[in-house]
Design a protein around this nucleic acid. Sequence first.
DNA 1: ATCTTATTGTGATTAGAGGCACATGCGTGC
DNA 2: GCACGCATGTGCCTCTAATCACAATAAGAT
Lengths: 209, 209
Amino acid sequence: MKFLKIPAATITRLSLYTRALETLIKEQVTVVSSKKLAELCGVNPAQIRKDLAYFGQFGVRGVGYYVKELLFDVKKILGLHREWKLAIVGVGNLGCALVAHENFTRQGYRFVAAFDADPMKIGRKLVTGLLINPPNEMHAICREKQVEMGVICTPADFAQDIANRLVDAGVKAILNFAPTQIQAPEGVKVENVDFSVKLDNLAYFLTTG
Amino acid sequence: MKFLKIPAATITRLSLYTRALETLIKEQVTVVSSKKLAELCGVNPAQIRKDLAYFGQFGVRGVGYYVKELLFDVKKILGLHREWKLAIVGVGNLGCALVAHENFTRQGYRFVAAFDADPMKIGRKLVTGLLINPPNEMHAICREKQVEMGVICTPADFAQDIANRLVDAGVKAILNFAPTQIQAPEGVKVENVDFSVKLDNLAYFLTTG
DNA sequence: ATCTTATTGTGATTAGAGGCACATGCGTGC
DNA sequence: GCACGCATGTGCCTCTAATCACAATAAGAT
């Protein structure tokens, strides 16, 4: 495989594969075929092989993939072999829940800073012991703590302003939970976790049958 | 336009359009072109026109779209002209946060039932006043309250079991926050809100540049 | 009434992702 | 040491979705 542009969907699936592989390890399975893995992930076997082919050869013909090895390799591809430092902005109900959630703690995602505009919250600490800071200190604190990703959990109206501040503080990756489309400059990646859109999809499905 | 199969991506964008249109209404804008709307949503203008074309003709040539009218029409297409009854399963930090979150309250999504397996929680009430019930009453309560959508906020290990119970109770649409792939029978739609996958996407982006 | 300008609706075109099918090659059994 | 079976890796094809480009058409100006 040469230097093709890798589809975003491939990266998303790789993430799914890591989860399935982790489950297999728990079940003490040592070898898995693309067929079996495909079943677990709900995709086509050829799809898996092709996804992996973008990055090299990981299987053994006639055998399959060694689970532990493959997990290690895929994690390395995704950049999950190291720890990532995150900041949370907006520690309302949702923000607090996220900081403690298994999805973050499971892998090497670690919150090293928290921000909120509410004067009642500033100076207090989260259950994890993390101090809540005012937004105007974002620049200084993010640089000091070397924050790499920002998680936005504010109401929609403030999301763009917060994103601008994060970008200004050198953050290159943003996970946005606010129900709004955020504009970011080239070189900064924004991923939206938009469950209102997903809900609307369900509503449409139920409406049309 | 005839009876073509409508792409899932189109439905997702329609949801985005409604949000942008709501913003425009707040700003007292009465007419909008596909070009302007496209900018707000970060998509191609022709894409918008084509998305809408699946469902009819909504614009005026030489003028654009009447914001209020279009919003009404798109909402109707998505099924947002009515209220939807939801049940939440798993009222930990995340579950509680969701019940109160603007994404649900904004539109006509209303929680009418809550479930949790924790004996300490059963019988207590959420801040919204909603009573927490044990999972084994799911069938009876969902039918009684005519629950149409289920929201799963349990740890990954329990998600499939809960999904089965929801399906058994006649629920045809599931929003899954647990980091796992849920199997559901034909006729039941599952949407995953998977922020660990999104995080992995960001990690990959930062790793490769 | 006619011309100009603006923007839609849509057929044609392009791009891209997913799936098929087979050649390749590894491991095992005889 | 050889043949057979099995699962990968990959070229090719198909199908779908996104974009382009233009004809259709509405409003306003002249």
